[in-house]
């Protein structure tokens, strides 16, 4: 499923990023495939905020759908 449906406060592992450009950028930022990340915030109909160690990244809802995580 997409990381957009992961509840806030959950730590989850990114399985695949189905967007080449976003994959490249997220890998540079340290949110690569295989990384364990925490979902910090889900703005209603808006972006998802992810956190790893002490760093955060916000990704738009549509893009978050293409960031795949394992079923819980």
């Amino acid at each position: 499923m997409g990381i957009d449906s992961v509840p806030v406060g959950t730590i989850t592992r990114i399985e695949a990023i189905e967007d080449a450009s976003a994959r490249r950028e997220l890998t540079r930022l340290g949110f690569e495939e295989g990384a364990d990340v925490e979902v910090v915030s889900r703005i209603p109909f808006g972006p998802i905020v992810l956190q790893r160690r002490h760093r955060q990244v916000a990704i738009g809802r549509e893009l978050a759908r293409r960031v795949r995580v394992a079923m819980q």
């Binding site: 950028e25 955060q56 990244v57 916000a58 990704i59 549509e62």
Partner: peptide
């Protein structure tokens, strides 16, 4: 384009 932005502390 979708939002993808690093949030500095």
């Amino acid at each position: 384009t979708p939002l993808l932005i690093e949030l500095p502390p």
